[in-house]
């Protein structure tokens, strides 16, 4: 199965990946309580594609995503996203980098409870102090595509879980970031809402050329992705391009074997 790791994707991959990591090491605690969440991850995430990161619980998926997104600093190793190296960036620089180049969708608690859906969608733009009018057309388009038109004045507590995730996706897509990270975006949703959210994510890749990286546990969710990265025990064991369900199951089962 090791040959699959280097399998080339069907389309030729663009010259610069949307995000790449080299020798990524991340440890927590020290001494007796030392936990190594990532033990030397090398990874390139191609641009304009929908990549799923899979792996057993505790394998380091969230940690990897946080490092790639500039939310967390790796203990060792280098990361570059959208052609920029994150190494040595100050907290402020990282923050500015995130609001300019990265979008997020989390499993839960995506929205600020005191803001309306519309305010939540505009939040990153506002934090960056960018003028709104330039993005107004895109906003209208995204909101319409995501079917949120009638919900813009509602607060998160007045929205269903699926609607909340759609608002989060709208927020992530509005600024046209270089890469969108989603950590188990469907973890809290029923299957219908899940399917909806996943197709929206996939649609953003197909129609808007967006790069999306999604952490997930579910095989069904991974089926929407173009590529699948399999993580086990802090290492990338497979990087599969458009894997079949069987290939995926096999890759996931491998470690257990």
């Amino acid at each position: 199965m090791t040959s699959l790791q280097t399998a080339t994707p069907p389309q030729p991959s663009p010259p610069t990946p949307a995000a790449s990591a080299r020798g990524l090491l991340r440890t927590y605690g020290q001494g007796d309580t030392l936990v190594t969440a990532l033990r030397g991850v090398d990874l390139d995430l191609p641009s304009g594609r929908f990549t799923a990161i899979m792996g057993p619980s505790g394998s380091g998926k969230s940690t990897l995503m946080h490092c790639l997104a500039g939310l967390d600093q790796p203990t060792e190793g280098s990361i570059s996203v959208a052609g920029q190296s994150l190494e040595g960036m100050s907290d402020d620089a990282l923050t500015r980098f995130r609001r300019d180049h990265v979008g997020f969708v989390f499993q839960a608690f995506n929205l600020l409870p005191m803001l309306t859906a519309e305010q939540n969608i505009w939040l990153p733009t506002e934090l960056a102090g960018r003028p709104r009018p330039a993005l107004q057309d895109r906003f209208d388009h995204v909101v319409e595509t995501l079917g949120l038109t009638g919900r813009l004045t509602h607060r998160p507590s007045e929205l269903s879980g699926g609607q909340q995730q759609r608002v989060a996706i709208a927020r992530a897509l509005l600024t046209g970031p270089a890469i969108v990270f989603a950590d188990e975006p469907t973890g809290n949703l029923d299957s219908t809402s899940s399917a909806e959210v996943l197709s929206l994510l996939r649609g953003s890749v197909r129609e808007l050329g967006q790069t999306v990286v999604m952490v997930t546990h579910e095989l069904d969710a991974a089926a929407y992705a173009d590529d699948v990265v399999v993580l086990a025990d802090g290492l990338v064991t497979h990087h599969l391009a458009a894997p079949s369900r069987d290939a995926l199951v096999a890759a996931l089962a491998e470690r257990a074997a």
């Binding site: 923050t95 995130r98 609001r99 997020f104 934090l127």
Partner: peptide, 16 residues
């Protein structure tokens, strides 16, 4: 705590 983390993820600087 989570809300602040979310805001920081979305681009709120420490100073802000």
């Amino acid at each position: 705590g989570r809300e602040h983390a979310l805001l920081r993820a979305l681009g709120l600087t420490r100073r802000q």
